Simulated assay, not measured.
Amino acid sequence: MRKGGTLIIQPFPGIGDMIWYLPYLKAIAREEGPITLLTKPRSLAREFLLADPAFRDVLYADRRLLSMIIPELIRRRFQKSWILHWSVSYASLPFFARVPERVGFGYGRQKYFLTSQKNLPEPSRTAHPITQLEMVMELAGYSIKKEDQIPPLCPKAHKKIIEKFSHFPKPWIYS
């Protein structure tokens, strides 16, 4: 496994949340190379996202056991992290793991754990999480492209779809 790279912390628990965040995760990966995602086990992100080349790895951590992931983060020597959540607890993980560049929303005490000086304005704290994501991406100068919005499909599933539906005329919805 190559050391370094980018860690993204997205702790919302469901696969639906992961779908919402997918374009932003892929946009970051397009700019910074394959990412490692830290999320909750309930998201099923490992099973869903590792077919996509934008993802190097998916790590799972339950909020009650966050401190137990720090040695693994140290071992991987990430160079940059994105905390896509307003929590101080999640922002402290890359801080204690000695990740040199740390980007996040920067609300309240979270800003003390970040290296980025481009924090979201305090009034945006009540905005929808997707609005907050759009704002932090804009501050970083990143944009969403059409291809970022396409969910990954593992090669085995793609092959089954082709075999089962190849006799039907295209265009197919999934493309």
Rank of each mutant, 00 (worst) to 15 (best):
residue 101 E to T: 07
residue 84 L to F: 09
residue 51 A to C: 15
residue 107 Y to H: 13
residue 160 K to Y: 10
residue 6 T to N: 08
residue 39 T to E: 04
residue 124 S to L: 14
residue 77 R to Y: 11
residue 116 S to K: 03
residue 57 D to R: 14
residue 44 L to P: 04
residue 7 L to F: 09
residue 135 M to A: 14
residue 68 M to T: 14
residue 140 A to I: 00
residue 18 M to Y: 02
residue 70 I to S: 07
residue 39 T to G: 08
residue 54 A to W: 01
residue 35 I to P: 04
residue 67 S to W: 14
residue 15 I to S: 14
residue 156 K to F: 12
residue 17 D to A: 05
residue 143 S to F: 01
residue 103 V to L: 10
residue 88 V to E: 04
residue 134 E to H: 13
residue 164 K to E: 14
residue 101 E to Y: 07
residue 90 Y to T: 00
residue 141 G to V: 11
residue 118 K to L: 11
residue 161 I to T: 09
residue 121 P to Y: 01
residue 33 G to A: 13
residue 136 V to N: 02
residue 140 A to Y: 05
residue 82 W to H: 04
residue 167 H to K: 15
residue 165 F to I: 12
residue 156 K to A: 14
residue 133 L to C: 08
residue 128 H to R: 02
residue 111 K to E: 02
residue 53 P to Q: 07
residue 166 S to V: 13
residue 65 L to N: 15
residue 111 K to V: 03
residue 46 R to L: 03
residue 9 I to L: 13
residue 6 T to M: 08
residue 105 F to E: 01
residue 55 F to K: 05
residue 13 P to N: 09
residue 18 M to P: 01
residue 46 R to Q: 12
residue 38 L to S: 03
residue 32 E to G: 07
residue 31 E to C: 07
residue 27 A to C: 07
residue 90 Y to Q: 02
residue 146 K to E: 14
residue 165 F to A: 12
residue 129 P to L: 10
residue 22 L to D: 00
residue 71 P to I: 14
residue 103 V to K: 02
residue 89 S to M: 06
residue 57 D to H: 12
residue 6 T to E: 10
residue 112 Y to V: 03
residue 43 S to Y: 04
residue 139 L to A: 12
residue 63 R to H: 08
residue 7 L to R: 03
residue 121 P to R: 11
residue 34 P to C: 15
residue 88 V to Y: 03
residue 42 R to I: 04
residue 18 M to T: 11
residue 31 E to M: 08
residue 136 V to T: 11
residue 142 Y to G: 00
residue 172 W to D: 15
residue 138 E to G: 13
residue 28 I to L: 11
residue 138 E to P: 04
residue 146 K to F: 10
residue 122 E to A: 11
residue 77 R to N: 12
residue 92 S to L: 10
